[in-house]
Design a binder for these strands. Structure first.
Lengths: 217, 217
DNA sequence: GTTTTGCTCCCCCTGCAGGGGGAGGGAGAA
DNA sequence: TTCTCCCTCCCCCTGCAGGGGGAGCAAAAC
């Protein structure tokens, strides 16, 4: 049984690198490559790969959108998420959407091979740094990350703050009173341990709570 | 004459990909790889490569720091800068520091080979998107990018704003009066066409004027 | 059924942010 | 020299931001 792999990444060098590494292995075959999420979805349906190596940050349609579309489909492939640094929030979101394994692009190449084999067996491989991140999230013993302390509504408000909106604008956007926005913002500042909205915005962008390229629409 | 190439990138898959692509070419040899800027400097001095493929974003010491240290050294190699998206400011800075060629990681691999050969001849290859960016900068016909309108002092102040500092803190940091900071901030808001300091901070982070991971020290 | 949590909105108050306008000194260009 | 740009600092003024405290209300948790 050869393991058939689909590689999804917008950087061609990365695709070539992964292809090169994987094709040197016995029992692994690269079934195809895609440069964006839309193409990836099409490829998954056409090629029916066993394993998908999926980059999270991509133009057109990003990795999370692909995961979301794939969820619940019959005979969907095992997905290994490839992340860069500083996308903690997106990684956690990917977990929620059912991705099996997570690798940082900084990891050694033999770990990639290992992850592919594990994923084909239905197993899961976690790069140490990412494992630590997820464990810290799941286990309630470790102090929760600041962003987890926020209520859903506060997260919405924080998103707006990180997009450069004023309290009055946020009030209009989210259909609530200006005073309410202020209440939420105050809670956010307290929970995040920052001094003002600018620092809160920077924090949100750093954590990937709002993608940098979507801020300031 | 074989062209000896040093590959510098913190992602091993990228290094493998580039190595794979380059080693298939006649007359090109991969002299070595480095995963961060410090190692890269060491490798350049030890291996004396003809061409360096240099990633800009790296931990420990980034690509710009490497370029800066390399500048003015005798027999320094030709440098090809590899950029991701959204690093416009860093690319322009790299030009200033004397890098020859610029490739986006999204470009086709044969362009990489072409760039290496060109760089070895002392020539320059520009990926179309980046060429357009630089042309827009140089040619005074195209309306200048907002950040270029800022004076040096204003750029310093903007950096501080994007790090979440208040006017009072900036005044202390940069040894000037609070009123002066306000003057600069007002000019910045006007020149960037944004409403408040939070939007200015977001803008600065988007343009790479301040690296996202350095904000909120 | 009571408690807790999240969302909503109100008040008062201090203080910083940002606009407007003015002004002096230094460097460099016309 | 004169003009212009940059940096510096000052004043006044409006208004939003953010802290503190209080309160009602619905859903969920206990």
């Amino acid at each position: 049984m050869t393991i058939r792999v689909l590689i999804v990444d917008d950087h061609e060098v990365v695709r070539q690198g992964l292809r090169f590494v994987l094709e040197q292995e016995e029992g692994i075959e690269v079934a195809g490559e895609s440069g964006d999420g839309a193409a990836a979805l099409h490829a998954v349906r056409g090629l029916r790969p066993d394993v998908v190596l999926l980059d999270l940050v991509m133009p057109v349609m990003d990795g999370l959108a692909v995961l979301e579309r794939l969820r619940g489909e019959a005979g969907r492939p095992a997905v290994i998420v490839l992340t860069s640094f500083q996308e903690e929030d997106r990684v956690v979101e990917a977990v929620r959407l059912g991705a099996l394994s997570y690798l940082s692009k900084t990891t050694a190449v033999d770990q990639v091979v290992e992850a592919v084999r594990a994923a084909a067996r239905g197993g899961s491989v976690l790069e140490p740094g990412i494992a630590a991140l997820l464990l810290g999230r799941v286990r309630q013993g470790g102090r929760p990350r600041p962003l987890d302390l926020l209520t859903p509504r506060e997260r919405q408000v924080l998103s707006a703050v990180a997009r450069g909106r004023s309290n009055a604008e946020i009030a209009r956007d989210l259909r609530m009173g200006r005073e309410t926005v202020k209440t939420h913002v105050s809670s956010i500042l307290a929970k995040l341990g920052v001094a003002d909205r600018t620092q809160a915005a920077i924090f949100a962008l750093q954590q990937g709570h709002v993608p940098l390229d979507e801020a300031l629409g």
